[in-house]
Structures are given as structure tokens and as C-alpha cells.
Design a protein around this nucleic acid. Structure first.
Lengths: 330, 330
DNA sequence: GCGCCTTGTGTGACCGGTCACATTCATGCC
DNA sequence: GGCATGAATGTGACCGGTCACACAAGGCGC
């Protein structure tokens, strides 16, 4: 474009990049030509020449889970505002080769990487990102995970679990059972430890957490098991999908919610408010988390970018119909 | 890398691209060097030089809806297999400027574009893609929409709606009311017309569809309205989220499902099987749709790629608890 | 034994930008 | 008036590859 329309060639570059020493009249000429020809600078060439890619790749094991999808949406929103392209890589499994392949792909894409490190695949991927690459992890627990020294953002899952458990205990339940999502690390998950802390503080017995999966099917299985135990009056679930399965299992076994058993979830998925009974849960701002992750990464990539101390979104307990006092005879 | 390790420079390129005339011994040398140095060809440089980007950008108005997220996951899966990078662009709204900006971003990314054109924003985006750019639309209705001549894939929504409506009519309902998702086009949506066709064939009265939104809140509002009308005994919803809201509204107004009113959804979202009552719905293979979209785009981008006549996934009716015969006195 | 075709490899230009440096020109100061 | 100074612009190299050639060596036919 340059030469033909305006007068020079490098000057175009200067105009685009807002270089100060360009005569106003020249600038306008170039601008006019740009406008007329509908010129857009080639992102690929720019990336090659400058070495920077203005792109971020989100690495995750799944795009359909509510939390993950919301984080992705948050990242995209922030990236769009900053004129960054957003790429996505799905980790096929937690196997080393699959994880390595995923990281490779993200690295090949150039730009920064955001890893959703809530589950085993994500945690391993975060750890597998070669040092030196700009990366931010969205983690459950901040205390140096395997991919330790990397910057991260998090929602305070521990606090959230604590709040939900407290809520149930305050209603008068003797203790609260916990159906856990798969943990990303070998160590106790933040959610589990928040739950445990609340129990300890209340001097309540600590039942063994029921390990489950991510989806409602897992919750259903766990719920069937817990339903057998008549002493169970309160169940906290690692996420709302799990809670849905538990609710269903309780229904099938004829246990009333919240009459006999109270159930609380985690995440406040969009459908949770409309279940019957509607689900008591803890709202987590995943989209905000995604935005924060991008902001942090942006700061890593460009020192000029705002490096706001990443705002830990405060979880908010949402009390609905699925929780209530324990039955009088319990 | 080249020169240092092996012997030449261009030869490396030949080896990588599997050019036939390279002496086996040379090839092995180069291969060894590549392996040793952990060399990976720079995707950016490749894109610049070759003009092709081996990437696909998915343009959508939302990443969190079940169907959309599943399509994205399907695209990613197929793209991963073909060593394509996957980008994502979210359309902020259906406003012309927002749509144009989204399309620009996708175009700037290079490579191909897949537009999820189920809603107004998506439909407009598909239409706004400049001719000549490789694009595939995931559409609701194939018959030349505004972005007419562009290749597309679809699930047979019409047939799906027809099946669901038939199912309810076969149970003995006099007619079936319909809660509609926002249509992408001004014309009647495929789902609506499938529903209508079933009614006509059965000689059933055709109530006016209730226009709603995408989420459960919209379904809830629609459900409240329909619940007032005691003659309503069967409701088909444009998607499972809507159905969830309807279910909730019916519960709130004391109408039994399926005792008094039957409800059917659309999509078979993961939670639908676990609702109480579990939801009768039509399963659509969104992930498969995403894979098909990519395959088609791949064919457009590389003539060598398999151009399988895109497999229209057949919708499958899943009958669960939420549908049953109408009450005897209706 | 010579020309010719085929095979393997190297060279130079180019993709569309950025960067470091050279150049031109007007200005201000002594 | 001569000269350093800074603003405005142009030039050449380069980012890391691909592509269209040129070119050397070996095998074949006559």
C-alpha cells in the first residue's frame, strides 16, 4: 500500500505506531490513504518482525464445563479489549505425552499462555510449560504448585468452601459430608481444606470426602452412596453439576431435600437457580478470573500494561431452597 | 539451526516438507540434528512466507452455552488432529459495528473462519465475512441464509423439532406449545417449522410460539405465562435451558410434570438427564457438528484434505420423565 | 567420448512488516 | 555566515521460513 498512496514506505509504519516525529500533514496524508485502501497491518508479518505476537492461548482440558467456559469467555473479553488474539488448546488427557503436546502447540502459537490448572491435566500442563515462556496459571491453590514459580490467579475456593460449610453447620447440622471433584494436585484441594477447617472450628466430626468426577453422573453415584447412610443430613458438593447428581440420587431414594438432607453446591452455574429445589451454592466469578488472568499475562508481556494487583474475586454464598435445618429427629 | 548442525539450509526445509529428492543419508543427518536441537519450525514465519496459516478462528456470540461450547470442542478436536491452531472470537453483540469488528479480528488472524450462526449476531457475522475468505457456517437452516453462498454444516433441527412434537402428540396431547429461542434470521427458524409441520400433519391447532431468550430465566418467564392457561398440556422448548426454566415455573405454579403438563427440551445438555423430573429432549451431536465444520473448512483450505460429504448428524429423541400422556380431564 | 536428462543441493528474491542507521533540510546560536 | 542540532524521512538489513531458479554431479543413449 504505502508507496503507492502516500509518498514513502517506512513512514507508514511510523504513522501506525504513533511515532512522534512525523509532520502532521504527512500523517494525515498517510492516514487518508490507509482509510481509503482499507489497509490493515498484517498480524503475521508484525509478529515475525517484532517477535511479539499479541496473542494468548488458553490451555484447558475442557471447554464445556461452566467454570472453564466462563474463564475462557473472560479471557477473551479482556483480550479483545487489548487487541489480542485468543487461541485455545484442549488437553486430550492428563498423560504426559498429551500434556506435552498441548504445551508444545500453545508454545508454537507464540504469545502468552494461560493454563486452567484446576485438574490433573491442567496442573501438569502448567508445570510443563518451559521456563521463560510467558504463562499465567488459573489455579485452585496458590501455594507453589508443581509449576510453582509461575504467576497465577485464583478465586478463593478455600474461603468459599468454608462459607458454604459454615452455612450448613449454622443451620444446625451435626456435620457436613463432602463430594469432591478430582483434585489437580496430590495435596488436599483448597475446597476440601476450607470444608475441613469449618468442621474443625465447629468441633464437628470429619467424614471422609467422597471422591467423585466432574459431571452429574459422578454426583449421582456419590449421592446414592451417601443416601444409604441415614445419618447424613448435609452434603456439600465440589460443583453444581455434582450437586445436581446428588439431588437426583436423593430424590430417587426418597430422601427429601431440604427436609431430610440439605445440599449445597459450588460455582453457581446458570441453571442452579432454576432447579427444584433451587440450589444453595457459592458463586464464583469465573469470567472475572479470566479477565484477571489476562491482565496479569498482559503485564508480563508488556511492561507498559497495567499490572493491577490481581483482584481476587470474593466468593459469595447464595442461599436457596436446597439447604435448611436438619430434621428434628436426626 | 540448519547450517550449524547439518550441512545446508534450504535442505532442511525440504526434509521437513518431505520433498522427494533428498538423499536418504542427508535426510537422516538433518533429522538427527532436528531431533538433537529440538527444532520446531516457526509457525509465524511459515505463515508469512507461505501465505497459509493452518489456523481456524471460531466466531461465536458465546462460549458458555452448552451447544456452542460443544461445537467449539469439536472444532478443536478436529483441528488438533490436523495440526491446526484454533482461535476464538466472541461477538460482543449483534450490532453492526460489533459484528464487523469480530469479523475483522477473525480475518486478521489469518487461516479459516468458522461462524456459529445460530443467533442474530452469528448470522450477521457469517454474512459479513468478505467474499474470498475461507469460511464455514454452522447454521440452523441450510437454505441460503443472508450469508448464502458460503459452505455450511448443520444438524437437522427441523427434523428434531418434528420428532419431539410428534412424540408429544402421539402421547395424546391435543396440541403442543412452543417456547422459541431467538431466531438468527427473520424467517421462521428450522425448529419452529419442524414443530409446525408436526402439528399440521396431525391436524392440531397451532398456538402462537412464545418468543424467549436463551437462558433458563427466559424459560421461566415463558413458563409462568403458559402456566396460566389451563388448556396447555404440552410444551416444547427451544433448548434444555429454556425447558429448565419452564419446569421451574410449572413447579412454582403447582402444575405437575408430567401429570398435568408435559415438557420437552432440545439439545440434551449434560444436566438434563438428572433433573427432577428428568427431561425428555432431542439429542444433537454438537461436537460432531464442530468436527464436520472443521473438516469442511479443511477441504476448502487444502484440496488434498478429505472432503467427506459432511455427515449430517441425525437427531435422536430421548424420552425421559418429563413427558407423558395428558391428564384424563383435559 | 559427448551431449542430455535426472537427481541432489545451493542461491537469491520475497512474504510484510520493524529496527538501526544514514540522509536531508530547516533552524538557532555564536 | 558557518556550523552544530534536531526534526522529518529514506535505506538497507533482518525476522524465519518458502519458492523459483541455477548449478554440480552421476547415469544413460548414441
Amino acid at each position: 500500500m504505502a508507496t503507492a498512496a502516500g509518498v514513502s514506505y517506512q513512514t507508514v509504519s511510523r504513522v501506525i505506531n504513533g511515532h512522534p516525529s512525523v509532520r502532521p500533514s504527512t500523517r494525515e496524508q498517510v492516514l487518508a490513504a490507509i482509510d481509503e485502501l482499507g489497509f490493515r497491518r498484517n498480524a503475521t508479518a508484525l509478529a515475525l518482525a517484532s517477535g511479539r505476537r499479541r496473542a494468548v492461548t488458553v490451555l484447558t482440558s475442557n471447554t464445556t464445563h461452566h467454570g472453564y467456559a466462563s474463564i475462557l469467555q473472560g479471557v477473551e473479553e479482556a483480550a479483545r479489549t487489548a487487541s489480542y488474539a485468543v487461541g485455545i488448546g484442549v488437553l486430550e488427557s492428563a498423560e504426559d505425552t498429551a500434556v506435552a503436546a498441548g504445551v508444545q502447540r500453545a508454545a508454537d502459537a507464540g504469545g502468552g499462555i494461560i493454563v486452567i490448572a484446576y485438574d490433573p491435566a491442567g496442573v501438569r500442563a502448567l508445570a510443563a510449560v518451559p521456563a521463560g515462556l510467558p504463562v499465567v496459571g488459573v489455579v485452585e491453590t496458590p501455594a507453589s504448585p508443581p509449576g510453582g514459580d509461575r504467576p497465577w490467579v485464583w478465586a478463593d475456593d478455600r474461603e468459599a468452601a468454608y462459607q458454604a460449610t459454615r452455612h450448613l453447620l449454622d443451620l444446625g447440622h451435626e456435620t457436613v459430608h463432602y463430594v469432591a471433584i478430582p483434585s489437580g494436585t496430590r495435596r488436599t484441594s483448597a475446597r476440601t481444606s476450607g470444608w475441613r477447617q469449618a468442621l474443625r472450628e465447629a468441633g464437628a466430626p470429619e467424614p471422609r470426602p467422597v471422591q467423585s468426577s466432574w459431571g452429574p453422573a459422578g454426583g449421582h453415584a456419590a449421592g446414592r452412596k451417601l443416601a444409604e447412610d441415614r445419618s447424613v443430613t448435609a452434603i456439600l458438593c465440589g460443583n453444581d453439576d455434582l450437586a445436581l447428581g446428588v439431588l437426583r440420587a436423593l430424590h430417587e431414594t426418597g430422601r427429601a431435600v431440604p427436609g431430610e438432607v440439605s445440599v449445597a453446591g459450588f460455582d453457581d452455574a446458570p441453571h442452579s437457580a432454576f432447579l427444584t429445589p433451587s440450589l444453595t451454592t457459592v458463586r464464583l466469578d469465573f469470567a472475572g478470573l479470566g479477565r484477571a488472568a489476562f491482565a496479569l499475562l498482559h503485564g508480563v508481556l508488556e511492561e507498559s500494561a497495567p499490572v493491577a494487583p490481581h483482584p481476587v474475586s470474593v466468593p459469595e454464598l447464595v442461599v436457596r431452597e436446597s439447604s435448611g435445618p436438619p430434621p428434628p429427629d436426626a
